[in-house]
Every structure is written in structure tokens, then in C-alpha cells.
Design a protein around this nucleic acid. Structure first.
Lengths: 235, 235
DNA sequence: CAGTGGTCTAGACCACCCA
DNA sequence: GGGTGGTCTAGACCACTGC
């Protein structure tokens, strides 16, 4: 059972330092040699663990400088989980305007997506996001109150919410699964987006997970794709 | 200029064997030790090159057996470039029905996507794809005639077209870029798909590239997403 | 200049597969 | 048993960074 390779167990121990908060975003971590001494393995094994974590976007290595803990929204990483880009190709972050908030027991869809019980309370936010002043999408997100206690009392919801999860609750969003469909705009969405009812919208349903692969957030976005598109790279 | 690391240059030489066809899909390639001798580098360097190629889905390594050239449509790899899955979760390959074919000079969109001139001839295929007998999507694909000569004379277009590119022209599709939008069904698409004109469709525009990153195929799919969705994993 | 990560080598032992 | 890839170690040299 515990016959994972040594480098994988080293990785797990180092991820533990991230989860426990003893390594914080942006921080310089000890050198390979130092870690090898601390952990009682060779430098090569530490390197393999660090390379794994680098591939997972958890660390950033810089020759001559050292190895750093990745900060969620650094440079392009801001867009790691935002694949909707203007047709013109520029990558801009949209502004946000919160249109609704509440806290209540999870509905069936939320309970399934977040792997929690129907009775568990969730906090919800609906917000409109605009690019260069024009409505781009409206999204509804739900998080388990148990996991992000105090979310419902936040005065403002920052634009970059994954940075908030990290700063306030020490939760790093490590990945997400998205399901895309084309739908017709509902009356309320159309009003928010300033388009016609029935207009085709790109619907993105996302479950975001933390380092331990536990669902943290469920989000459904309805996007106008007249001047933007969702970009996917397949390799 | 040429100061790429040794393992990267080894990778390029080995990719060359794939491109030239001296290594063919499914084939067992020489062992690490043998390659190290042939190429005059250490086993560790060969390993790093092979690991790279494995990560690119070009090779498959099996402990105790050896290293094999990946077969484009082996097992789940059939779906490497087919991200549209039924909501039920099963992964089935759709049947295809060709609805139109022609060969002509490239239009502006094709020339831009395939990086060829307007005068260059392209072969086009439009086909309807069905899942369990129900229309799922209609797609139009264009390939440069110069690159896939004889394509226009094919009697049948196989369901798995990337396997054909490999078998007939020795071209391996190594990656693709997809742009997604929500659009309203045109009259002709609606007729093919058996839906109402104006019905929201998921439009997937894909440029597929070969091992050397040269565009090989341009494809635009219009999909019904009533009972299926496009699945994306973000890491 | 010293310290870091990046590359490259050499060799050991293991787990797995097949004849 | 002999060969394969998978893991782990140890040490060398290089390229880059900052003092």
C-alpha cells in the first residue's frame, strides 16, 4: 500500500508543507541540497519531487535564484483558470459586479458537485463580469460554508477569488473540471447581459478542487461569445 | 541557437525517426541501453528524451516489455482529441455520414488557419456524426491538398480520420488548438441535425498540427449539447 | 565570488515480463 | 534467467543570479 516511489512520498511531504501553511505563496524554499539533508534522501530524488510539483504549478524554479512557492495570480497564471479570451487575442481580466448573494442549504446539484450533504449550508454569489465595459458573462458560484466560514460575511468579493481562498483560508485551487454546453439565454440572464432572450450562450460548469482533490467551489457561467471564445489546447 | 540541451536534441532526432517512418506505430523500439550506444550518450540522457516523448503521447513504455511507438487510436487515446461526451458519462465514438465533399482554392479562413496561400487547393468534407443513432454534430473539415494528396479521391472517409493520416501519409497529429463559441443553428445545419433553426449549438473550431507544429487540418464542428457536453480538465 | 538550479554521466538495485 | 523499464544514488560540470 505504501509502496509509492520515494520521490512521490517526498512530494507528498512537501505538499504537506504547503497545506499546513508552513510554506506560503511567494516564499523561497530551501535549496535541493538542504532539503536532501533534511529528508535524508539524495539530491536527485528531491529534484524529481520538486519537478513534479513544478509541473503541477505549485512551485516555480529559477536558475541561479532558487525554488519559490507559486503565487496563484502571478503574471499569466491569473488566467490559468480563465480560458475565455477576446477574439482579438488580448488577455484581459474582466471587472465584476455582484448581483445577488445568499446562504442556504445545498440544492441537489450543489451537493453532488461539492460532494457534501443536502443539509450542509452553502454560500452563493451571482455576479456579472464585464470586459472593457461590455457585459461578458454572468456566473453563479457556490462554496460550502463549512469549508470557507465567513465567506457570507465578506463585504466585497474580489475579482480574483482564488487569491482570496488562498489568503483567507489557506486553500490553494489546484485544478478544475469544466463541462461546456450551448444554451439559450434565460430572461433574467438576458436582462443582465443586455442581450435577447433565447440568444445562444456558452454555459461553463466548473468544479474547482484543492491540492487534495476535494471540491471547493462550484461555478456556472453563462457567456456571450459574440466577441470572445473559450480557448483549449489539446496535446 | 543550437544550444538546446542534449536530451532535447536527442528527442528531436528520435522524433525524426517517427517523421521519416523508420519507426512505425505499435513497433518496439530499441532499449535505452541500445539507444545510448547508438547515439553516444548516457542511458540517463536517453531516458530523459524518452520520458519527454512519453509525456507527448508519442511513446508508450512498459516495464519489463520495452518502449513502443504509440498507436494513435489505442484504447482511450481514441478520445484524445474528442472531448464531446454524453452527459451519462460513457465514452462512445460516433458514427459518421458524409454529406458533402469538394476540392477548391482555399478561402480566407482556411488559408489563415492552415498557414497556406489563397491559391493553394484544399479538400473539404462535411459530415454528420451520430451517437446511438441520434444526430450529435455536423462538421466541416479542410486539409491542404499539397500535404494530403489523394485525399479528394478517397472512396470512404473513415470514422477515425487521424489514423488515416498516419497510415496513408505518415502524418501524426500531435496537438490541436480549439476555440469554442455558442452560435445559433443555421437553416442547413438545423436540417441536418434535426433541430430548430436558431437552436443554440456549441461551435468548435479546431486547428490540428503535426509533430513539427505545422497545421494539417482545420475543422469546424457545430454540436447539439442537449445530451452531451464538452469536457475540459484544467491543471 | 559563492550559491542556486540545469544538465549529464555512471552505476546500483528493484519489479516486471517472457521464454 | 536474462532483459526491460523504474528508482535511487553520487558526483561532475555548466549557466545564471546576486553580492
Amino acid at each position: 500500500m505504501d509502496h509509492k516511489p520515494l520521490y512521490a512520498r517526498i512530494r507528498d511531504r512537501l505538499v504537506g508543507r504547503l497545506v499546513s501553511g508552513s510554506w506560503t505563496p511567494g516564499m523561497l524554499i530551501p535549496s535541493e541540497m538542504e532539503l536532501a539533508r533534511q529528508l535524508g534522501v539524495s539530491q536527485g530524488t528531491v529534484r524529481k519531487a520538486l519537478d513534479l510539483m513544478t509541473a503541477e504549478n505549485l512551485l516555480i524554479r529559477r536558475q541561479g535564484r532558487g525554488t519559490f512557492v507559486a503565487v496563484p495570480d502571478e503574471g499569466r497564471k491569473q488566467f490559468q483558470f480563465f480560458r475565455l479570451v477576446p477574439d482579438s487575442g488580448e488577455h484581459l481580466l474582466p471587472e465584476s459586479r455582484v448581483t445577488r448573494r445568499d446562504t442556504a442549504a445545498a440544492d441537489a446539484a450543489e451537493a453532488a458537485a461539492l460532494a457534501i450533504s443536502r443539509a450542509a449550508p452553502v454560500c452563493r454569489v451571482e455576479r456579472l463580469r464585464l470586459l472593457a465595459g461590455k457585459p461578458l458573462l454572468v456566473e453563479t458560484l457556490s462554496v460550502p460554508k463549512a469549508r470557507l466560514d465567513g465567506f457570507e460575511a465578506l463585504e466585497t468579493i474580489p475579482n480574483n477569488i482564488y487569491g482570496l481562498y488562498a489568503a483567507r483560508w489557506g486553500i490553494t485551487i489546484a485544478g478544475a473540471t469544466e463541462k461546456l454546453k450551448a444554451i439559450a439565454a434565460s430572461k433574467t440572464d438576458a436582462a443582465l447581459l443586455g442581450c435577447a432572450t433565447g440568444e445562444p450562450l456558452l454555459c461553463i460548469e466548473r468544479v474547482a478542487v484543492d491540492l487534495e482533490n476535494t471540491p471547493v467551489e462550484w461555478r456556472v457561467s453563462r457567456c456571450l461569445t459574440g466577441e470572445a471564445h473559450y480557448l483549449a489546447e489539446l496535446r
